[in-house]
């Protein structure tokens, strides 16, 4: 999805390539995502989704190509810190802390003023049903509780760009819905959300645009409806049908 409004571009990736020795993990991937957009990033296991996300955060260097977040080069670490929130697949939380300690620690590192941080943390804890367990050590938490804590810490500083890797994995339906609602609210407030997941109904529910990565290449991109119709899966086709069609071996051979 190529943006037409340069000022509104939140994420811009140009000809991203990543190789490991002779193996190409990502092959000239380009996309441009506007502010306030929820971008569903799909692809089978091993397609290069996590590599792409690490490139977008600057945690990994591309072999060639560039990434800019809100016009800032991603290797400008001091500037990029306040612009990006990232929730990787494994929640980056400290088991020796309680959720409250973890979030207060992140707020301190993000230079969020103490009063405002406390208020925001309490709101989020309450919203994600963690208030009663907020003082328990994270080591005693379920996978879903850790995931919710990590989601809160990734949005605590109101980032301009939020990158989520399987955010609803391991969550019960209520918590998964909370996350979906939060994603929509953040996008409405102007945050660009880059959402990588295998749960296609989540993408259908919240995404404004979809990109499908297969064998390190962006094989299709557009609105969910557009992608579904492009894949020629028939009138009753779903995003799942389209996904299966564009990531099939036959499709790869045609390319």
């Amino acid at each position: 999805m190529v943006s037409t409004n340069a000022d509104a571009v939140a994420i811009e990736a140009n000809d991203l390539q990543k190789t490991y020795g002779t193996e190409t993990a990502l092959d000239t991937v380009s996309f441009s995502i506007e502010t306030g957009t929820v971008y569903g990033f799909l692809g089978p296991n091993g397609a290069g989704k996590t590599t792409t996300m690490r490139l977008l955060t600057g945690l990994t260097q591309p072999t060639s190509g560039t990434v800019r977040i809100c016009g800032t080069a991603v290797d400008d670490r001091r500037a990029i810190a306040s612009l990006v929130g990232y929730l990787p697949e494994t929640p980056p939380v400290y088991e020796a802390f309680s959720a409250r300690e973890q979030l207060e620690y992140v707020a301190e590192l993000r230079d969020i003023p103490a009063g405002s941080a406390t208020e925001r943390i309490e709101q989020y804890l309450d919203r994600f049903d963690l208030a009663d367990d907020a003082d328990k050590r994270i080591s005693t938490y379920s996978k879903g509780m850790k995931q919710k804590t990590a989601f809160i810490q990734s949005v605590l500083h109101d980032p301009d760009v939020l990158l989520l890797d399987e955010p609803t994995s391991g969550l019960d339906p209520r918590a998964a819905r909370r996350i979906r609602e939060s994603i929509t609210e953040l996008a409405d407030a102007g945050t660009a959300v880059f959402l990588s997941t295998h749960i296609l109904p989540v993408v259908e529910a919240v995404a404004d645009a979809v990109g499908v990565l297969f064998d390190g290449r962006l094989v299709t991109e557009g609105t969910p409806e557009g992608v579904t119709s492009l894949a020629e899966t028939g009138e009753d086709g779903t995003l799942e049908d389209a996904f299966l069609a564009v990531t099939s071996k036959e499709a790869a051979t045609d390319r």
Binding site: T57, G58, L59, R77, R78, I80, A81, V84, Y86, P88, P92, V93, Y94, V106, L109, R110, Q153
Partner: peptide, 13 residues
């Protein structure tokens, strides 16, 4: 470092 995705995207190295 533990939780590198958090720490490295929050403060300067």
């Amino acid at each position: 470092i533990d939780s590198e995705e958090l720490v490295l995207l929050t403060v300067h190295p």
